[in-house]
Design a protein around this nucleic acid. Structure first.
Lengths: 177, 177
DNA sequence: GCTCATTACCCACCATTACCCACATTATGG
DNA sequence: CCATAATGTGGGTAATGGTGGGTAATGAGC
């Protein structure tokens, strides 16, 4: 499966990795709760989600930003879970609890509600971390703390996976065009 | 045309070993944090990642440079690990910690952030080492130090693997003489 | 209906970045 | 041995991206 894409009909080059977010940015929140959304991430957004994202509570004290189409997909996925309809509804509500849909302003920023800011204990600065098809917002201090708590075991696991040449887990060799 | 490229039927150059990096290079970082990326390595990049790489923290004090498609593959692989969701999240975050996506400029250079430069203790010079599907950046002094620390055990292991049958060279070397 | 608080849209500034050109040096080919 | 291309290094400059603030629309409360 490579949803990788096609060029646009207007000939403009499109991102070959839609909704794929990598690396970190450090921005400031202004007194109105506005946070810049990294320009590379904006460009990486799929056409369907060009201007709309959902900000929700994340795990371990961060906030999550989903492109709208990814969010909808997640929501639909709950219906495929083996749980009862009651439990599925509960899952959906937990997911949406505190979530806020947000649009970009002319400068590419989103506005966080006071509630979300409080949930993530955000102060003046935000760390924005690309995590594949979603983006995490962190209080930099908490993130630092979280990272430093990683024990030796996790780090050696990471090391092993990083150092492993090519991956035998995923299918490789589908490079032909 | 370069010796490490072959021609496709359509006449375009294509590398027979995409995302395969060998050999060492020694370059300088300029005052803007720009480092040249070896021309043979640029040619070795897969078509998908021709223009984009990710620079991340590596083990033992070096930096890692991944072609974007390799990086994405690694990231997806974490979700297939037998570990708990919490651990998977931690792995993903550890992987992304400090990571920066970068594009090549017209001269084939990437720019390193001050943070990455500091992490790897890079001064004026960088040693660039091909390590299979990824590339390592080293402070040459630290690399030298690291190599010299290899003890007798490691060296004898290397010796054994170098001379072990399994390659034509090793085999014939064993039987000849 | 009116007022006030909140939100959304707009413009302005400026540091940083990316793009461009220039040149020195090395490899390549005749 | 010279000519030519390719590669590594440095720097100027226009464009982008991040930040702050003014002002018009929106909506809630009285």
């Amino acid at each position: 499966m490579s949803p990788d894409a096609v060029k646009n009909e207007d000939g403009k080059e499109r991102n070959p990795f839609p909704n794929s977010f990598t690396d970190e940015f450090r921005y400031t929140i202004d007194h109105r709760g506005r946070v810049n959304f990294p320009a590379p991430f904006r460009r990486a957004l799929s056409d369907e989600s060009k201007d709309r994202v959902i900000v929700a509570r994340g795990m371990d004290g961060c906030l999550l930003v989903f492109p709208k189409d990814v969010w909808e997909q997640r929501r639909r996925d709950f219906n495929k879970t083996p749980y009862s309809p009651q439990q599925q509804r509960r899952l959906q509500r937990l997911l949406s609890f505190g979530a806020k849909e947000s649009a970009f302003d002319g400068q590419g920023r989103i506005t966080l509600t006071p509630r979300l800011i409080e949930l993530a204990k955000l102060k003046k600065e935000v760390l924005i971390v690309g995590m594949g098809d979603r983006v995490e917002l962190w209080n930099p201090d908490i993130y630092e703390q979280y990272i430093s708590e990683s024990d030796q075991t996790v780090e050696s696991i990471l090391e092993e996976y990083l150092t492993r040449p090519g991956t035998d887990m995923g299918e490789s060799a589908d490079k032909a065009v």
